[in-house]
Each structure stands twice: as C-alpha cells, then as structure tokens.
Design a protein around this nucleic acid. Sequence first.
DNA 1: TTGAAAGCGCTAACAT
DNA 2: ATGTTAGCGCTTTCAA
Lengths: 331, 331
Amino acid sequence: MSVTLADVARRAGVSPATASRALGGRPHVAPATRMRVRRAADELNFVVSPEASRLAGGARGRVGVVVPHLAQWSCGAALEGLEPVLRGAGVDLLLYGVGDPAARTAFFADLPARRRVDALVVLGTALDEQERARLELMAVPVVAAAGRGGQPGVRVDEHAAARHAVDHLLHLGHRRIGAVAAAGPPDGVLEAFAAAHRDALHDAGLAHDAGLLVRVGRGAPGAAEGAGRLLGLREPPTAVVASSDEVALGVVRTLGRARLRVPDDVSVVGLGDHPLAEAADLTTVCRPAREQGAEAGRMVLEALAGGAVPTVVLPSRLVVRGSTAPPGRTT
Amino acid sequence: MSVTLADVARRAGVSPATASRALGGRPHVAPATRMRVRRAADELNFVVSPEASRLAGGARGRVGVVVPHLAQWSCGAALEGLEPVLRGAGVDLLLYGVGDPAARTAFFADLPARRRVDALVVLGTALDEQERARLELMAVPVVAAAGRGGQPGVRVDEHAAARHAVDHLLHLGHRRIGAVAAAGPPDGVLEAFAAAHRDALHDAGLAHDAGLLVRVGRGAPGAAEGAGRLLGLREPPTAVVASSDEVALGVVRTLGRARLRVPDDVSVVGLGDHPLAEAADLTTVCRPAREQGAEAGRMVLEALAGGAVPTVVLPSRLVVRGSTAPPGRTT
DNA sequence: TTGAAAGCGCTAACAT
DNA sequence: ATGTTAGCGCTTTCAA
C-alpha cells in the first residue's frame, strides 16, 4: 500500500534501523549513507508514519490548543503567532474549541487530550479549579496565554494597559473621563480595567465619581447602553475609555447618533488594537496578541524539552489615532 | 506507565481482543461483557492510544485545516463552525497556517499532511494548479470552504452577495452608487464584486460610469484612498458599497473626516457581516462563515465515510442597519 | 461470543 | 557505523 521505512532501507541497501536514524537526523550515520537513504526516501516519496513513530517512542510533538472563541480576532491572532513557532519545530497543532459550555465540559470530562497531546496551550480563558485538576491529571505541560494570569504562561498587564488609555486622556487635558466595562473577558481582566480607571483618576487628584464607570452587557447593545448612561450623567464626560475596541466602536456610533462628534466633542479610547481599529481611526492600546501566541509557542517548546513553564508579562502600548483630542471648548 | 488495553482486559477478565471490541463499540460482544469492560476501563481511567489504534488499522479520524489568515474573523468563524462538527464525530483537527508565503510553500512541498490526516479542509483561499496537484497526490478528500469556488466544497455566491448590497441602495433610491474594491480576497471574489456592481447598475438602466468602481490596496489606507477617489469625482456618489466590512468602516471614517454624515449625506454598505458591523451599525450582507465551516465539516465526515465531496453554495443575506438611508436632498 | 496470534511501521537497546 | 532484536498498544483475522 504505502511506502514504508523498510522499502526505503531496502532501496538504499541498509537496515531499517539505519534508515530510521538517517531520516530522523540522529547521529551515528555516515554522511554518505545518510545521503543515500535520503535520496531513496525522496525517490519513493516516503514520509514517516507519525503513529508508528510515536508508538515506538519516537517523536514527541503534538500540542493541543484550547480556545473558547475562535471567531474573536485576538484568539485568531494568537493562533497565528503560535502556529508557525510550533510548526517550525515540527510539532502538530490540535485544535480544541470550548466556546460552547457543553463542549467545554465535555473536553475536560473526556480528557480527550490524554495521550493525544504532549502539551496544552490554553488560550484566552481562565480555568476553574476543577478544570485545572483535570489537566493536572494529564501530566503534560500547560501553558496559559492571553488569560487573566494565575497560571504560568504569557499575558499582558491589563491594569497597565487600561492605565495607558486613561493616562493618555488625562494628558490631553480631560478631567471627566468615563469608562465602559462590557461583560465578556474573564473577570480578572474587567476588574483590572475598573481598578486602572479608578487609580488613574485618583492619582490625577480627581474626586472619585462612581457614576463614571458603567458596567454593561456584552455586544452592541451593551456598548450603546454604556454610552447612553454616560451621556445621561448630570455632568457627562468629555472622554470615554472602553474595555475593548469593539465596545469603543459601539460608543463612537452611539455618540454619533447623539450628534456628538469624535474627537471634537468626546474622545474615545479602545483597548486591544483590533485590526479594524486602524480603519476606524480609533485610538487604542495594543495588546500584542500575535506576540503572546508566539511566546506561548516558545514556552511549549521549552516545556517539551523538559523545562518549566515561566510566567511572562508582555507590555502593552498606546496607539494614538484620530479618536482622541484635547477637550473641546464647551461641555 | 500508562494504562493499556491489556490492563483493562485483565481487570475485566477478558482477552484484549474482546476488550477492544467492547470499547470500540464493535459487534460480537455480549452486553454483560461489554458493560464489565466499560466499567473496568472507567475505573482504570483508560483512554485508547490513538497512535496504536490507527497503526493497527483502527480509527480513521484526523483532518487537517489549511488556513491563510487565522486572525481574519471569517476564518475564525468558519473554524468555529467546523470544529464542533468534527469533534462531535470524534475526529481531531490539525491546524496548518499558510499565511506566510514561505509557510505555504513549505506546506505543499513537504506534503507534511501525508499520512498525518485523513482529509483536508482548505479555508478561504484558492489553490493554484501546482498545489492542487500536490494535494491530489495525498489521495485524501479535500474540501474547499469560503474559497472562490472552482473546487468542490462550500462557498457563498459572491456575485449575489454584492448584488444584494447594490440592489438595496438602488431600492432606497440611490442612483450614483460607488464601489470600493480593496485587494485581499482571492481574485475571483473581487471580480464577482466588480461584476455585480456593474450588472446591478446596468439592470437598473443607469449609464455606465467606470469611475464609480475604484480598486485600491488593502487595509485602512486602501479604504481611505477609495473613499477619497469617489469623493473627488465630478459627481460624487450618494452611496458606496465596499468589498468588505473592514473597508466599509474605513470609508465611513474617511467620510466623517470630510464632514459627511452617514447615512444622511452618504449611505455605506459593507460585505460580510463582521462581528463589529453590528456595533458600528453598519448595513451589510451576511456571508455565513460559521455555517460554511459547519457545512464543510459535514462534507468531510461524508467524504471520510467514502462519499464524494459535493459543491454547495450558501445564500447570503442583507442585514439592514443604520448606515444606509434614502439619498438626502442635496448632493 | 470469545480467545490466540500476528502484525501495523517504526525506534531503541544491544550487539557487532 | 551499522545490523539485530524486541517491542510500543492496539485491531484483526482465524480458530475455538
């Protein structure tokens, strides 16, 4: 049926063991022999069977990626960073979506990854105690990426990111700065956002005003509601920071409907540097999603090589675009 | 080390063969025996080794997904549709990113999928002749999804989608309708877009005006340029249809900078129904990405079962939001 | 219905 | 440097 290592060995006039060594790039093979085997393999169009190889104790190299929301750009971007690193090292990437709660339960219950993967990357979601315990049971390295922290892996400092945003507005001269925190991200992230907003205003010596932080539901309706609540304040803010670019765009739209111009009347800052933020000319704070993925990939490789998984916090970076400006003349 | 089938068999007091049959759901096992084996497996926390299983001629069930731009929401969405279908059927999903040209070349050159996967899904990209030939060589079913057509699989009718958009504008009373086609999607898609624009205007009895279709580069700069060119026309359009939602948002922004209101002064329609389109209140045409993924998944399953891969064209659907309105009083 | 035996294709010791 | 010998953990004939 398909070409086997034995075929290649025969054609090259060596034993299967030597052929295996030669092809696998392992030592103790004469250069000439290696060449010969390589050529034979080429001619036969041979590719090792990963099953057989693994079964026989060879190639490690399969990592599972657990992702909640594939459609979310940040997950995709992280994957895009992760994939080449892993592939470059010859390890395969198995995808496990756990967006659906049922699927999530099933994943951790079936522990389907057991024996299927040599390591796991958990992308953009926090694991609860039970889930962590299940993973522990698998006895493979687990790298968290883009999560809220708490597990070894890579993430960004959410508090710092949000502060970049608020500080930018303060720096522009704004004194009434609203914040819209929309549900969606893991709790820890939202908390960091709220805290950063509070801290920044406090550090600027501004009186605390609980009304400036509004917590809303996810999606477009949430963003609209948030903007509406802020606008309805006795003294509406001259600038708004949103917990994500998605929310920020919703805020911009709601402002527009209220005949308020961005940034002339109100400045808006997002969080994340969504690909569309550039098109929408939205000032935002870049959370390097790709980089997080790539870093996670490197961590996996190290872990596979026997190392421990460290914790790395990547910096975020303010990206100033056209949705922010100094406060206008009137309020 | 890890629990093997033999362990389970011993504990259940049967032979490995019977245990295998019982666990694998194959016939010729007494119900009572099957139960006993199942329980033993449970108690031992046993999971079959996929390598060994496959090697021994068991479970097929591993499909590769080839994706160019993971970070693009439509790819993510398609994956999100694809994954549960496949997982539900017990097949694993291997991810192969081919966004980077080098990676793409490497993928098709190494033919790494050979023997690694039992089927392939090609997401959102068109294969050239050579690539197709390489895949052919693998002798596994290939399902194209969200491509430009040409290969069996699932896609949407791009021409119809674009026409929905233009027809909507015509229906609102617009007579000068510009189109911004930004580079990015496979050629065929862009062609369909251009043709639909032309055809719709023609069918509406409007004189042909080549200036109304502008082709620009990708990204925010492209969108801005496109809007600018349209605005610079002797007789600027009262409505614009963009080749994607991303571009549409860029157009909206550029319009805003030119102090033109959407939809009061100019209507804008996007294409794709990007998740952010709702937040941005953008009228668009929904290309059901998730559905395409799910459909592709079903096709793979059928193909794995020995069926042929059909070609399915999914309908697109106009989603009217706040970025379109009848033409204003003045131009 | 069940068991025994023979590999699947490869790699890792242990020779040579 | 190369060959020989045993499996890896499972499924599948074939026999009982």
